[in-house]
Design a protein around this nucleic acid. Structure first.
Length: 147
DNA sequence: GCCAACGTTGGC
DNA sequence: GCCAACGTTGGC
């Protein structure tokens, strides 16, 4: 899962009560579908810092609440307000994530791009801008072996 | 259903 | 700040 550290970085998650936060604001259907259908309680997630000096994987989180309506879409004052989403027919979903640990170092995007084993990783495929992307078990373990 | 215009993402 | 690569919108 990607987030801009200037907006919400891994240290912000670390400092939350229970080190837990809802992952709101996602307004892309593919990403929503993953939160709605694929992300299960206990699943592990990489925390990726995007749009910053050193883009890359910085930590690990865990899903502690499965997909439910993103209430930030209901709030006209919220940056991610969507008038087409309401309580009866919520259009957007989110999950709750909990901090697990910070990696001993940032595994940079540049580094990930250079690994043959990760050629299939969604993150490094051409032009991928999704804010949530799947990681296979093999890819997960390989990435952690780089730490 | 097509597709041009537009807005966004995010690396660089 | 630039701009490639997307996704979305809306006229037709």
């Amino acid at each position: 899962m990607k987030s801009e550290p200037d907006t919400f970085g891994i240290n912000d998650l670390y400092n939350k009560p229970n080190q837990t936060e809802h992952w709101d604001g996602v307004r892309n259907y593919q990403a929503r579908n993953m939160m709605r259908d694929d992300m299960k309680l206990g699943d592990r997630v990489f925390f990726y810092h995007s749009n910053c000096e050193m883009p890359g994987i910085v930590g690990i989180m865990e899903i502690v609440k499965e997909g439910y309506p993103d209430f930030s879409a209901f709030d006209p004052d919220d940056k991610h307000f969507d008038p087409k989403s309401d309580h009866e027919h919520p259009r957007w979903m989110m999950v709750d994530v909990k901090y697990v640990r910070t990696l001993s170092r940032t595994i940079t995007l540049k580094e990930l791009k250079h690994q043959e084993e990760l050629a299939g990783l969604a993150l490094v495929r051409r032009g991928n801008r999704l804010s949530i992307m799947p990681v296979s078990k093999g890819e997960w373990e390989f990435i952690l072996s780089l730490e």
